[in-house]
Amino acid sequence: MASETDTTAGIEDGVRRRDFINIAAVSFAGVGAAAVVLPLVNQMNPSADVLAQSTTEIDISAIQPGQAIKTSWRKQPVFVRNLVPAEIAAAKKVPLSDLRDPQTIDERTKPGKENWLITLGVCTHLGCVPLGAAEGENRGDFGGYFCPCHGSHYDTAARIRKGPAPKNLVVPPYEFNSDTVVTIG
């Protein structure tokens, strides 16, 4: 009896003490639950050792003009291609308005080193490795790379020209340490 009257104390303003306790307890539990979810979500992100593989040095001295090599950075394939002048000229000739993801070849290479086209070998459609880096592989309709998975064609600046891929092959962050050594990452 006594407790029943207690819970209705202060009922005049429409708020019971129990309402306050209820809201406070549930909010507190909610904050606690959110605090626990945070590490559970965050553990899914790349771990420190995966991130530690973030830079790779490549020796490019052996790549002849017209050739390309395939190497890897952060477990992803990277294409390093030594363009011949005709390929650079072909890329320059394309009007930007023809491009799905408009970028000039200068934006995709380093000044003075525009023969070095360094991109990820990851098709921007669903991530297959395009063909065209190794000798004799299909380079597609535009002489760059061709992704066999769903038929994306890239040009000599590795820009998307035809097929389902939405973007150009990604140019990773990189620096020339010297004329023959590049650090990616």
Binding site: M44, N45, P46, S47, V50, R74, K75, Q76, V122, G127
Partner: peptide, 9 residues
């Protein structure tokens, strides 16, 4: 995607 894979590939 990176979150799902816990890496870049």
């Amino acid at each position: 995607r990176v979150w799902l894979l816990g890496g870049f590939a």
